[in-house]
Nucleic acid binder design. Structure first.
Length: 522
RNA sequence: GGCGAAGUAGCUCAGCUGGUUAGAGCGGUGGAAUCAUAAUCCAUAGGUCGGGGGUUCAAGUCCCUCCUUCGCUACCA
């Protein structure tokens, strides 16, 4: 019986098209999900769009569209991005969906039943232009004594009726939970931040708005819509059936891990667990805050004109090249830097030159020298056994351990070390020379390489699913062997006996060239 | 201001709970090889691990301080 594994990305706010940050999160989450499937777990992978809130409303108005239409349109971009990038989600959730509204209202009622909601007034300096409240300390004095927001817009003292959530009540329970579950927040630096924040004291949270109506209606207070985060976070449970006791719900909640950006750690590690505690539901096992991608070390922004469209990147360099680059080059949890030069260099060195060429040279030798069958395994030498052991250890131990730890870059580093070992082995054994001196030995060497390359391709499936699958298909590796437990088993002899023949091998990782035009920004 | 992250070979970065001659990739240099996507393999490059102080038998690895860069500071992944 396989152990369920439930993983989510953050639910993206689609008031603009997806950018490389969304792509990065989706790719990283997808790699983990794919790994767990290959690791024998039953996986549920959820992503989606968080379509409520003021900004969507404003963006739509500015574009002269109905908010609902904008949401439909934008949400589609995110879905397309997932398709382009080979994101293997099980559910794509939209917060505007009816079942999601039902779920949000259900959790609201639970908070209310726990006595954690109360109606009060929200007062403060409000800027109509910014549609935001500011603290007194943030304001500056403008002309004629008019107070101004940090953005320089006029503010006025405003009183708004609002529902509040007794967040303060959960200060101690949260701290106790963090202490009892050291892996709840990762990486550690994010945990430290969160703990410090909570220790600093929690104020009750305003969880409804009356100033606009694009959202989930508050049960019993129809002029209120729910705070967008309360609604958005609920996606993680509405996606798998809540409030209904569906099979998925019973199987997958609590989530194994929420993968999110470092900027929204607080919502996921303070508010979300507090809501769940209040609702009497179990808490997710882990929240992982990944870093940001920088363009040549600089933050990406529209004004700098260095915003990158992930779809364009994928078209330019290839989906798997992009996936590989992001997961290999960036240490998961830390910020990383992107540039066309970096991706070309990394992908050419690792995928084209090292791994791709290894597969190509090996399969070519087999194709040309073995009369269309797989080479015979004529008894291994020490060198062969050493290589098989090294690859087996990498594929069955090191790489899965790193994946399990969400350390994709380290998994790939171990993977590359194994690739290097294979290339070194090829050069030492020189099968092209054995062809004349000792054909039997040549076949054994090629058979050894075949088994190693297949294992390496299997280990790479979570990262570069498309091309790894193509390679395994070329090699005829049976589906039953394409997972971490069975990659190193004895499928080879059976495959060879089956009479399987490889065709003229086709290179799967073409060398990339730097685009002629500087940068690829839109 | 507060909190946090980072500063390690030319470049991009690994270095967990302190312990033999500080690591990898890329680049550079010198060889080897020619099966393969002009790809591969071997060797090599002498970096005061931001500065200073301290703890310790022993510190990139702990403490203090200073400098630099960056993020967050209650509702934009």
């Amino acid at each position: 019986m396989s152990q369920p594994f439930y993983i989510t990305t953050a639910i993206a706010y689609p008031n603009g098209k997806p950018h490389i940050g969304h792509a990065y999160e989706a790719i990283a989450t997808d790699a983990i999900a794919r790994f767990q499937r290959l690791n024998g777990r039953e996986v549920c992978f959820v992503t989606g769009t968080d379509e409520h809130g003021l900004k969507m409303d404003q963006t739509a108005r500015a574009a002269g569209k109905a908010t609902r239409d904008l949401a439909d349109e934008m949400s589609l971009y995110f879905k397309q991005m997932c398709k382009t990038l080979d994101i293997s989600y099980d559910h794509f959730c939209r917060t505007t969906a009816e079942n999601h509204h039902t779920a949000s209202q259900a959790i609201w009622k639970r908070l209310e039943a726990s006595g954690d909601l109360y109606l009060d007034r929200y007062e403060g300096w409000y800027s109509v232009r910014d549609e935001a409240y500011y603290d007194e300390s943030e304001l500056t004095d403008g002309e004629e004594g008019q107070k101004l927001s940090p953005q320089g817009t006029p503010v006025e003292w405003t009183v708004e009726e609002s529902w509040f959530f007794r967040l303060s009540k959960y200060e101690q329970p949260l701290l106790e939970y963090y202490a009892a579950n050291p892996d709840f927040i990762r990486p550690d630096s994010r945990k430290n931040e969160t703990v410090k924040f909570v220790e600093g004291g929690l104020k009750d949270l305003s969880v409804s708005r009356t100033s606009f109506d694009w959202g989930v209606k508050v049960p019993g207070s129809e002029n209120h819509v729910m705070y967008v985060w309360l609604d958005a976070l609920t996606t993680y449970i509405s996606a798998i059936g809540f409030p209904n006791e569906t099979e998925e719900w019973r199987k997958f909640w609590p989530a194994s891990v929420h993968i999110i950006g470092k900027d929204i750690v607080r919502f996921h590690t303070v508010y979300w667990p507090a809501f769940l505690m209040s609702a009497g539901l179990p808490l997710p096992k882990m929240v992982f805050g990944h870093g940001f991608l920088l363009s040549r070390g600089e933050k990406m922004s529209k004004s700098l004109g260095n915003v990158v469209d992930p779809i364009e990147l994928a078209q330019l360099f290839g989906v798997d090249a992009l996936r590989y680059f992001l997961l290999r080059e960036v240490s998961f949890g830390q910020d990383g830097s992107y540039s066309p030069e970096a991706i070309v260099t990394r992908v050419n060195a690792d995928l084209a030159n090292s791994f791709g060429n290894l597969a190509q040279r090996t399969l070519s030798l087999i194709f040309k020298n073995c009369e269309g069958r797989l080479p015979a395994n004529g008894g291994h030498h020490d060198d062969d056994n050493a290589l098989l052991e090294l690859i087996g250890n990498a594929v069955s131990k090191q790489i899965p351990a790193h994946f399990e730890d969400l350390a994709m870059s380290q998994a790939l580093e171990a993977w590359m070390q194994a690739v290097f070992a294979c290339n070194a082995y090829v050069d030492v054994q020189a099968p092209w020379a054995l062809k004349k001196t000792d054909p039997e030995r040549m076949e054994t060497v090629l058979a050894t390489l075949f088994m190693c390359i297949a294992q390496l391709a299997i280990a790479a499936l979570p990262i570069i699913p498309g091309s790894a699958t193509k390679l395994l298909d070329q090699m005829g590796v049976p589906n039953e062997a394409r997972n971490f437990a069975d990659a190193g088993t004895h499928w080879y002899a059976q495959l060879a006996e089956s009479g399987f023949q490889i065709a003229q091998p086709i290179g799967l990782f073409p060398r990339l060239e730097l685009p002629a035009e500087e940068g690829v920004a839109a």
